[in-house]
Design a protein around this nucleic acid. Structure first.
Lengths: 214, 214
DNA sequence: ATGCCTTGACTGATCGATCAGTTAGTGTAT
DNA sequence: ATACACTAACTGATCGATCAGTCAAGGCAT
């Protein structure tokens, strides 16, 4: 009993984890400039000074939130992508599913991050270097895999395909209710994630086919 | 000569116009929370108090910037959309071009707004009501036109097509250089607007075809 | 001289960041 | 075992800077 055993620490999270979680939620809801260190500290139920003690500056905390979450997402993407057989007739669909499913958050708990993720795609200057370091390497892997799956596709076309497909994702990842509103749905129920994913893959596969045929 | 004639006011803009232009630029670069009224006043070369005199609050100034620019964009969209013959074989392509070309900014001067436009699509709570009032009516017109052009398409499918197509737009409207970077372009020249527009229409038309066939 | 613009000066509030100081745990010499 | 030294974790108080917004007064047409 002399040692603390981290194995059984279930809900008893550490202060650092509390801060990261609180920061992720608030950054997602209000953006970087809209979120105060005081609000994060209150949400995490720690003192504001502790945030600076652990992360230095607000910007470094922001970087930490994004780099950690992006690592989880991209690790999951890589695992799915490596399973794709580029010779298969459904290769493109599988590649797209590997691209879309992890950020759509089937592995629980990534929902608040979705807004940050979307924001990065259209991001300001601050975010662009983050995208470069956290997402560009993975993007290059997807682009290369697309070129393998569709013979005769140059990097420019594959990169454009990747970019446009990613754009389609971010309009449905947000879950702001606009799609349902434009659909004229009477039942207020949100769309099912699997259904969205299927339509997303249908749409982007059709788009890529059109682009690479042209 | 007793009246001010707005016809010949070329570069001699009014203070209100200067404020709106400065606000648009800064809101686009730094976002709502990242932009201070002092910075807008300096950019517009007027006093900070004048901003509050003309627009009341920062939020009202923001609304004014977006509602004015969105009106121009959507007026242009409506004009193009009304010219589309839904019986034509190229109807979908023409509809998509009507959707994409105005915000891509061929009519000069809309470039800084592109970042605001993108931000609205993935927007926070504040922006969602703005999207509803400024863009939803136009969106419904495009969705209805799509249903006319592709017989047998229900509103849900057309709305999903519209949403996904719009997502593709916002990744290329930003011009943050990522597409060129992922393409591995040696020449630092940015992509031509007309070329981007063509690929965008190719991609989204293929996607919509896939969605409506399914 | 009346009414619309425009301004400098200013307010209280909130921002991110820093500080000295407290607590708890750990190793170490006696 | 006991006393001491050192460190990581954490906090309350407070800093200067900046925030959006206010106000009385000046300029300047008609």
């Amino acid at each position: 009993m002399s040692k603390a055993e981290p194995a059984l620490e279930d809900t008893a999270t550490t202060a650092v984890d509390n801060i990261l979680l609180a920061a992720e939620i608030l950054f997602a809801e209000r953006g970087f400039d809209g979120t105060g260190m005081k609000a994060i500290a209150q949400e995490a139920q720690v003192s504001q000074a502790l945030l600076h003690y652990h992360f230095g500056t607000k910007e470094q905390l922001y970087v930490e939130v994004i780099s950690r979450r992006s690592k989880k997402i991209n690790d999951e993407r890589h695992a799915l992508l490596d399973c794709v057989d580029t010779e298969s007739s459904t290769a493109v669909r599988e590649i797209l599913e590997a691209l879309f499913r992890p950020p759509l958050g089937p592995a629980g708990g990534a929902e608040p991050y979705a807004k940050i993720f979307s924001g990065l795609v259209v991001g300001r200057e601050r975010d662009q270097q983050l995208v470069r370091s956290c997402y560009d390497p993975t993007a290059q892997r997807f682009i290369a895999k697309l070129q393998q799956a569709i013979p005769g596709t140059d990097q420019a076309t594959a990169a454009m395909s990747y970019t446009l497909a990613l754009g389609s994702l971010i309009t449905v990842i947000n879950r702001n209710g606009r799609v349902e509103r434009l659909m004229g749905k009477q039942d207020k129920a949100a769309l099912d994630t699997e259904e969205i994913l299927r339509k997303l893959v249908d749409f982007t596969e059709g788009g890529i086919t059109a682009l690479t045929k042209a």
